[in-house]
Amino acid sequence: MSARSRTLALHGAVVAAILALHFILPDYHHGILARTMVLAVYAMAYNVMFGYTGLLSLGHALFFAAGMYGMGLSSIHLGFSPGPAIVCGVAAAFAVSLIVGILALRTSGVALMIVTLMFAQAGWYLVLYFGEYTRGDEGFVIPRAARMLAGFDLADASNRYIAALVLFAFGLVVTLKAVESRFGRVLVAIRENEERARMLGYDVFRYKLGAVVLSGTLSGLAGACYGILFGYVGATFASVQYSILPLLWVLLGGASTVLGPFVGTYFMTYLIDISSAYTTAYMLVAGVVLVVLTLFARQGIMGEVRRRLIPWLP
């Protein structure tokens, strides 16, 4: 089997398996998987920048929230139907990531982390400041009537699962395409040795900007879809916690693997869900996982799988 077809077979099998689970899973697990798939797209987007390009952002919530609020505000205040509202959200995330990229990429390393963090904090405060429109911390609900997409009621759990799966498959295709393309190879080269990549004649800044914009726009798509699928838009999604979570998911699942972000998101969602049944301090799990991962398992789950079992894993 050629490298290309075995990659297609593997990822096709994952999507098919999730489709099969749709008919089997009990409600609780069905719901978690639907949510995980949407958040996994956010994690995959984060991975484009962190895993493949080696740029650690602490402010991705800004892009996620740009997509979510671009969708939500245009839906509530302008009466947009889901399609245009999602487009609106994606456009907002594209614009925000372009501006943040142009500014933040003048820095690198620790400074880049702090700059992205600060931009995201400013975005979060903006949501709170314009509480008149955003309803601040409390957030707002997208009414059921505004969640009809091409005749499908997205408030219905079954439709929602399928919609999430379509989004997830789209995310997989985009990241696979990006990673295996010339563009993706250059991103990896920049991660490995930026100066060498520059001296091979690559315009490093433009490639990095491309990575930020792709990552930010895809994050925005995930945010917009999360809002429309689950019918709620709130400031939590703009807070620093939602910048840390994708980092956590990607580290756990395995940075610079295509399936890692999904695996990490899935495990972490369960861990947090289970622990929140026992204690309000469920974020303790996140803290412990972060420390343990940095100390003992930098590769993450799929990174280990690649190292031990499937060396060709993309």
Binding site: G109, A281, M283, A286, G287, L290, R298
Partner: peptide, 27 residues
């Protein structure tokens, strides 16, 4: 110390410490 003070790793680890300290206090 065990991370060798690598800048990115220490930031991630201190984020973890943030949650551990905060959530243990909550408990």
């Amino acid at each position: 110390k065990r991370l060798g003070y690598d800048p990115e790793n220490t930031i991630v680890a201190t984020i973890g410490m943030l949650y551990i300290i905060q959530q243990l206090t909550l408990m």
